[in-house]
């Protein structure tokens, strides 16, 4: 297991970003995705917090994988994930109270984010630490991209700014709906539409004669 070729590692890394993107393909962890993607900064900090928890807990789960008996593995994973969520909670408070207030309960709720438990159970518990962390990193980058895609669109339309920088001048008319919950669903729907259209085209190209190697 330890002599993973570089290509395989890269594949593991890319899995979460494209093929199994947690937001656009697996549609997991929708609760934070919809709730905190009101602005690009919120979305990005939520994504980074999740990334920290995901990578650290996958690393630790993978380290302990031979030690933990099957019967108590879920309990162990939850304890580990909860630990890192608490750490992230403290760190965000220390870094910026504004972000902490904006993210609210959703920082603590990272603990129930199914992406993390799913990765710990499906991948980290079966792979060595490096591979597990690479895969977790890919997944969380995919999650950050998803969150950012939503947050950017909602902030641009909902406030006329991106990262707090005004894009359209002072006379911009904000689309109130975009910072309200329905806006999250509508923008997510639009992204899913785009993503699946892209995927379908890619598959059609591969399926076309001469496009790929066999069906």
């Amino acid at each position: 297991m330890n002599d993973l070729s570089q290509a395989k590692t890269f594949d593991e890394f890319m899995e979460g970003i494209w093929r199994q993107n947690p937001v656009f393909v697996m549609v997991l962890g929708m609760c934070p995705v919809l709730a905190v993607s009101v602005s690009a900064v919120n979305a990005l900090s939520m994504g980074l917090a999740t990334m920290f928890v995901l990578v650290c807990s996958c690393g630790l789960v993978s380290l302990l994988r031979k030690l933990v008996p099957k019967e108590v593995r879920i309990a162990t994973y939850i304890v580990i994930i909860a630990t890192f969520v608490t750490v992230v909670d403290y760190v965000i408070q220390a870094v910026s109270l504004e972000i902490y207030d904006a993210l609210g309960a959703f920082i603590q709720l990272i603990v129930v984010n199914c992406i993390i438990l799913g990765r710990a159970e499906a991948h980290a518990s079966k792979h060595p630490p490096i591979a597990a962390m690479v895969n977790a990193l890919g997944m969380s980058i995919g999650f950050v991209i998803g969150l950012f895609a939503l947050g950017a669109v909602r902030e641009v339309l909902g406030a006329g700014t991106l990262f707090g920088v005004s894009l359209f001048g002072p006379n911009f008319q904000p689309w109130v709906v975009m910072v309200l919950p329905p806006g999250g669903f509508i923008v997510l729907g639009a992204w899913l539409l785009l993503f699946s259209a892209l995927k379908r085209r890619q598959e059609a190209r591969l399926a076309a004669p001469g496009g790929g190697h066999g069906a």
């Binding site: 006329g160 911009f172 008319q173």
Partner: peptide, 8 residues
């Protein structure tokens, strides 16, 4: 006659 994206 507000410009697109601009407040009326």
């Amino acid at each position: 006659l507000a410009w697109p994206l601009m407040a009326p």
